[in-house]
Design a protein around this nucleic acid. Structure first.
Lengths: 259, 259
DNA sequence: ACAATAGTGTCTGTGAGACATTATGCA
DNA sequence: TGCATAATGTCTCACAGACACTATTGT
């Protein structure tokens, strides 16, 4: 079928980033306004081509994270999301994009002055609203990233990645509420979090709130997976559930403890 | 930072397959003996390079599934696993591999006569034992695939993909036991499966067993996700759990397919 | 009858949902 | 004292684990 002279087609490889954070109780994603064609002027995920043939994928993700978002990778969560390679996804040619999901604590300022001057935080419900147009297949990638984060909150300690090094239980609850888009009972949430050994560890200090009793501060504990998992309220109506059938681009994690 | 003449480096793109099935109560993966360099003679995952620049990733996975395993994609589960792109993973150059996970019902014969005459089913515990050497980074890919399957059994109806169109509850239980490597109580398993609406639907017929009362036959139902999930016995000792840290993202690739 | 497997019923402990109550800060 | 939030306690129901028991086949 293939003659001896056949050589496989070469492709270009890009790395795109879904960077999520919490700002004022809402889930935000970092988007950049494209300065060049194609899709010039439109919103897109931060990302770019592989720098050189010797660069590792994860390394490229870290580089883009720094270049485009001004974020150092020290404290933040970064995991591979999926590969996207539909033939027509980039008008410049055959480009395969490996998407990464990054979770960052709420940064006070989006970014500025850097290479990423055009970057800004956008609430995900706005970014994914039918009115918003994203470049390439970035809507799909962003959707998948948010979905991954939502699922991982259930069975992993990912929520702590949205918080700073020290946080209160109430702050952690806000993460769940914002990402899942639900309201949780503070008492049950408190009991659940503290009942999972190693999820969070008390730091001994307290943080004053605007009003009311000061809250204890915690750090993330050694535990990565939650057993039993955090239960997400099921907003599904009775009957069969979402199709979820095919997977053209990606899938999810699957690995519970992976990352 | 990048001058106007800069062009991104091109890479080769391969698709590799983790194909899992159940044979005689044990979890097996399909491996091929490589006929060409590199790693000639060693075991590897089925896979190969993108056929042409216009081929979709999933399409390529289906093609390889057919070429190398002789499997038609009609009845089997196929989802993307991850992208593997470590710089040194393929001695021939920079090759990024997008791995797919396929789940197939137990086939009576491995394969033969086809392009994949060198393919054979290997128990995963054998394939992943320290003694077995796999080409490229296929050990990692296989490990990730098995891990994905293990996790998905918990919260999805993936187990039915291991069974034929009609199956008994006991057969479904064997899937869980083989993939998880545990023993489950038949009575509790039966109760659990039948309590999840739409997981399996009775087909009205029965299947005779070697001895004992005939079992009712079922088909997979419309439900894709299991709420609440199937609970996996936790073989973890108390204390912090597995690190599960990063994912360097690597890959492998396949042979060229010619021969 | 007996063996062997399919399928049902019961008890109990754990944990989630709902919600009352107490504790600790500030004005 | 009053208000707001943190933290703890109580009750109930759902469900997983353990296991006794009944049902239906073949020999």
């Amino acid at each position: 079928m293939i003659d001896d002279q056949w050589v496989p087609p070469a492709v270009l490889l890009a790395v795109d980033l879904v960077i999520l954070t919490l700002r004022e109780g809402r889930l935000h994603a970092l988007l950049v306004e494209r300065g060049i064609e194609p899709y010039q002027g439109q919103l897109a995920l931060p990302g770019g081509f592989l720098n050189n043939a010797g660069e590792d994928l994860l390394e490229a993700a870290h580089r883009e994270l720094n270049e485009e978002a001004g974020l150092t990778a020290d404290t933040l969560h970064l995991e591979q999301l999926a590969a996207y390679g539909a033939p027509g996804r980039d008008p410049r040619g055959r480009v395969i994009s490996v998407a990464y999901l990054a979770i960052a604590p709420g940064l006070p300022e989006p970014v500025a002055g850097t290479d990423a001057s055009a970057a800004r935080w956008v609430p995900v419900d706005v970014a994914l609203s039918p009115c918003t147009r994203l470049a390439f297949d970035h809507r799909q990638i962003l959707t998948d990233g948010v979905e991954r984060a939502r699922n991982k909150l259930e069975y992993s300690a990912l929520a702590t990645a949205f918080c700073g090094p020290e946080f209160t239980i109430a702050e952690l609850q806000q993460v769940y509420e914002a990402v899942w888009g639900v309201r949780l009972d503070p008492r049950n949430f408190y009991r659940k979090v503290k009942s999972v050994e190693g999820f969070v560890v008390p730091v001994g200090a307290t943080r004053k709130t605007e009003t009311g009793r000061p809250a204890q501060l915690f750090r993330r504990g050694p535990r990565q997976t939650l057993h039993p998992p955090m239960t997400r309220p099921a907003p599904e109506p009775p009957g069969a559930d979402q199709p979820v059938a095919g997977q053209s681009g990606t899938d999810e994690e699957g690995d519970r403890g992976d990352e």
